[in-house]
Structures are given as structure tokens and as C-alpha cells.
Design a protein around this nucleic acid. Structure first.
Lengths: 322, 322
DNA sequence: CATCAAATTTGAAACGTTTCCAAATTAACT
DNA sequence: AGTTAATTTGGAAACGTTTCAAATTTGATG
């Protein structure tokens, strides 16, 4: 492989000079620059990025650690994250943890060994103590501590919004359906918003939860239908759960939205060719992704951030289920 | 950062010895090994992977170059590819090209500079000439030349299968709906299989194509409906197109499957909560992903492959649209 | 205990950059 | 032209690892 040394020889200059030409650093006489550039052309030389990373002790690689890229919400997020990273010449490394704590730690270790510039983490367990201080992290939807900045949709307002929309659509006894998430998860606030708004409006409501992650959605939903057949509105903590509910409910002859109104959360239906089109609280995925990366840039450059948690407004998107 | 030298000092041995302990290469006396391991423990040392990559002039990084991870077919593929890579300690770098030739070339250049171990490419234009020989590539669904091995579903059989299923479901005049793909694209064979099977069975058929990629699906479909209102079976080249057709057709009062039978290709509906559940030719995504990576491993290790194109059987999956 | 082969260890070179100081050249004034 | 200041260039050191030839230790054998 042709190296900077070959270029220097051919151009009749020192390696340092070639380096300065390549990086536009330091002063170089126009004539010298020309010679060097000619040599680069002739040898079809391109800098060895690996050597550079090594020398600089840092790389332009950012890792995205999430449960599964297969999940449509995450794949949309990953799309925008990669796009935003590319704008500054950063590269994206993808790590599927499956939500398993041991795999999350395994990847965290690996990323440290590989000296990535930063990490975007969507993790299931508390990684606060397993993370070295010298690698910037921004997490999505998980708030651990000062060290790890968090970007999230405004879950609390989302919960309130969902409750209001259910009531507006005619529900008299709305139910929250979801999982008991860890105290670190910001998604917990969806439930809080729901509850507080129900109380503020004086509406009767139901809370139904299962440990996270829910493995047996169907069983969970059937149990709910058995115990709370009187609920006439559902706020499901994710679109997937909402869709699953509708599927199960229809098997029992329950019609949506005639008998029960349903609202999900996420807004994963990008191409609304499939039905029912969910009424949902749409997360501003693109904005979240870009903000995450820009905050990560700040951390990489050592710029102090003014907040620990950045909440981005959500909007209600009307579908066919309310 | 603590380096191999610190470990060597603490353990009272030479750096070479530490290296041999870490890599299990060469002979090391048990007693020495113990001393070294103790030192590693005490210093909490872990090898600098970047330095290693540099010295070895290769990394365990594989790039996945595709139009958009947002596309559910690709995100499933990416999931399995990452999983298979991780089994051998390889890492995945994700590159969204948007299907734009210039972006594909830009990424290819970048990957070369970064000395990735290999590339999985799902590209829109012919990258044959823009790729150096020293970096192994396996492509999915695109067959350029000897240099680039191709993994694909058995598109030809998939086309035949779709035609047969449409006829079996009662269609008298089935239509193929898709895009005129480049000659390099293996997906072209879906059309060929469709045509040949129709001819073999003596069935009347329609071929309707638009340049790839189709930007205005709706316009394309409406044009089709206008020109070929008599077609009573549709084989759409992707599930997305099938779903879009059904959506448009229903707006014109056409019922599926009563009036028209529809079959897609891909099998993207992993969680069939949404309707209609498409009848489709399911690509064996997991198998394709794993085979792709194993072939890439062979290429990385210089093992010659016996074929240029590896075709994996498809199956028909009955949904609600036939 | 002397010898020799095998096993183990040492330490320097190399990988391709960037960076920094010193040296050399050029430019700007008297 | 001579002096000084500013600009440009040269080249070595350093980053953390692996590898390899040479040196040393070990252990068996006579």
C-alpha cells in the first residue's frame, strides 16, 4: 500500500510536509503544495484512516447500542442518526443487544476497547457504573445520572394528550396498558401524565401493567380483557402493543373504535397502507435523532450541556382507532 | 491509558511476553503467565484494539451498504447480519446510501480508507469498477461479476410460484407489477419466472413496469388501473408495492381478494397485526443474511468460492389477499 | 557436571500517521 | 549588502501493538 512516505519521496519533500498538505495545517508554499498534490494524484494515494485513528488516539466512530434494529421505531431512529453523523464525517456502528444486560455490558466493553468517539445508548439496564468516564454517552428514553445525557419525547405530556384524546373520542373509562419499566426509563412518565390528567378531569381510569419486557403480549392482553372488560378506551404504551390489542380484541368480537377507542405511542406507521391506521402519540423521531447526535458532538468536544434531560414535544396523530 | 508496557513492567517481563499471553500465541511458562495475568488484573488493562488494527493492517469491521435501514426488509436483514457477525467478533458499520450512486461511491471510498475487513453491498448502480480488489464484497440481489459474490433469493422460482398461486386462487389474467431494474439486479428474474410460468400454463398475462426506483407509487398504480382494469391478479415486486396497490384499488371500489388477487414479495409482515395480511413470496431473510456473512468470511480468509451466485429457496406464505 | 536440544524470553523493528523543534530559506527592512 | 524577522521545510519521536531473530534458561542425557 502506498504511504505518505512514497508521496514524500516522489514529490521530493519530507513526510511532514505531505501531512501538512493533506490536513491543511501549517504553512505550505503554493509551489510545494502543487508538487505534493501531483504526487498524490500519480500514486493514487489516500490516507490510511486506521493509522490516523491510532496516532490521534481517537476515531470518528459512534456506536448505536439498542435492543433490535428490527424494531421499526429503532430502525427509523437509526436512519436519522446515521444521516446526522455522516454530515460531520462520523461513522455509525450498530450493536443489537437484544435488551439483555450481559450483552449490553459486553458491547460496552468492546466499544471501549475500540475507542469509539461516543455512544448512543438505548439500554434496558443501568449502565451508569459500567461505563468509563472518558467516553461520551447520550441515551434515549433512559435517564440514569448526570454523566449520561438523556433525550426523550415528552412522555408526560404524551400521556396527558392520550388521555384527553380518549375522553374526547368518547371513552368513559380509559385504561393505561403497558409494562412496569425500570425507574430509569423515561417512558414511565407516559403513565404519570395519563393518571394526572385523568384525575384532573375527574375521569375513572384503569392501570394495567406487566414486567418489562412483556414476552407474552397475547396472554397479557387476554388477561386484561378478562379483568377489565368495562374499559372503553386504551392507551397502549407502544404502537405494537396497541396493534396487538386490537387484533386480540377483534377476535373476541370487540370493535375498534366503536366499542373501544385505542391510542398507541410512537407513530411507526410511516406508509399507512395497512389497517387499522392507529391513532397515536407520534414521537418526533427525526428531531430526537438529530438532537441526540448534536448533543453527543458537544460532549465529544467537551462543551458542557445545560440540561440532563432534553424533552421534545409530541403530537397526536389521528388514525382510525378513535 | 495503561498499555502493554505498563503491564510488562509490573510483571517484570518483556512486552513481547505480555503480547503472547494476551493472544495465546507462542510458548509461555505457566508461572510467567500467572505473573502477567495478575498484572493485567491489577492495572485493569485491556488491549487497545485500534493499535492492534493498525499494526495488523486489518480490522474486524464489516460494512453494510444499503439504501435505507428504515425499510423493514433491510432492517430485518441487518439484524441477522449483525448477529452473525458478532458470533465471530466482527463489528457492523451501517451506511445508508439512499440508493444514490454518488453516495454509494463516497461510502465505498471511505470504507477503503478505513480498511474494513469486508463489505455487504445492496447497491443501485454497478460498483464493480469502483471497488478495489483487496476488499472482499458480497452483494445481495445484485450480480455484477466474478469479483463480487452474490446472495439472492430464488427470484425466478419466486416468480413462477407467484404466477401459479395467482392462477390457483382463480385469476384469469394475472399481471406483473414492478420496476425495470438494472441488468445487474437479480430481482429481474422475478419477472422472468412469472412470464415463463404463464407461458408454460398458457395463461394470458400483463407486464407493467416503471423505471427503478419508482418515486410516485400512487401515480404508477393509478396508471396501471386505468390501462389494465381487466387484470384480476397482481404480482407486485415488493410487499410495499402490493400494499400500496391494495390501498389505491380499494379507493376505486376494487375489492381484494374478491375482485383481484394480490401477491407480494419479501414477507415483511413479521407481526401480522395489521391488515390485510399479504399473501406473499417470503424471502428467507435470516438464511440469506447468515450465508452472506459466512461467504464473506471465506473471502476474507482467501478461501475460493465455488459459485458466483447463491440462490436460496423461497416459500409462498398465504395471507388474506388470495 | 558438561553438553546439547528444546523451550522460553528478550528487545528492537515496523506499521502510517501527526506534531514539534530546529534548521533552512525567503522576505522585508536599513 | 547586511541584518532581522517571518515563513517554510526537514526529520525525528511517539502512538500501542505484533513479530522475529537472537539470547537465555531449562531439563534431559551421558
Amino acid at each position: 500500500m502506498t504511504s505518505i512516505k512514497d508521496v514524500a519521496n516522489l514529490a521530493g519533500v519530507a513526510v511532514g510536509t505531505v501531512s501538512r498538505v493533506i490536513n491543511n495545517s501549517g504553512a505550505v508554499k503554493p509551489k510545494t503544495r502543487q508538487k505534493v498534490e501531483a504526487a498524490i494524484q500519480e500514486l493514487n494515494y489516500f490516507p490510511n484512516e486506521v493509522a490516523r485513528n491510532f496516532k490521534m488516539q481517537k476515531s470518528k466512530m459512534v456506536a448505536l447500542l439498542l435492543p433490535s434494529i428490527w424494531n421499526p421505531f429503532f430502525s427509523e431512529l437509526a436512519y436519522y442518526i446515521e444521516d446526522e453523523l455522516d454530515r460531520e464525517g462520523y461513522k455509525l456502528m450498530l450493536c443489537n443487544s437484544g435488551g439483555k444486560p450481559e450483552k449490553e455490558l459486553y458491547y460496552l466493553d468492546m466499544l471501549r476497547q475500540n475507542k469509539v468517539a461516543g455512544i448512543v445508548g438505548i439500554t434496558y439496564n443501568d449502565i451508569e457504573n459500567n461505563v468509563s468516564n472518558d467516553i461520551p454517552i447520550v441515551s434515549i428514553d433512559r435517564h440514569f445520572n448526570k454523566k449520561i445525557t438523556c433525550v426523550t419525547s415528552d412522555n408526560y405530556e404524551g400521556g396527558r394528550l392520550a388521555l384527553r384524546e380518549l375522553v374526547k373520542a368518547g371513552a368513559r373509562k380509559p385504561a393505561f396498558m403497558g409494562s412496569v419499566t425500570s425507574v430509569f426509563s423515561e417512558t414511565m412518565n407516559r403513565r404519570e401524565g395519563f393518571i394526572h390528567e385523568a384525575q384532573a378531569l375527574g375521569v375513572d381510569y384503569v392501570i394495567y401493567e406487566k414486567p418489562d419486557p412483556i414476552v407474552d403480549n397475547q396472554g397479557f392482553i387476554n388477561e386484561f380483557l378478562h379483568n377489565h372488560g368495562d374499559a372503553d378506551g386504551i392507551f397502549a404504551i407502544t404502537d405494537m402493543l396497541a396493534a396487538c390489542y386490537i387484533d386480540q380484541a377483534s377476535k373476541q368480537g370487540i370493535r375498534v373504535p366503536e366499542d373501544v377507542k385505542v391510542i398507541g405511542y410512537d407513530g411507526i406507521q410511516d406508509n399507512p397502507y395497512f389497517h387499522p391506521i392507529l391513532s397515536t402519540v407520534r414521537q418526533p423521531v427525526e428531531e430526537m435523532a438529530r438532537m441526540t447526535i448534536r448533543l453527543l458532538y458537544d460532549k465529544i468536544e467537551g462543551i458542557p450541556l445545560d440540561k440532563q434531560v432534553y424533552r421534545i414535544p409530541v403530537v397526536f396523530r389521528q388514525g382510525e382507532t378513535t
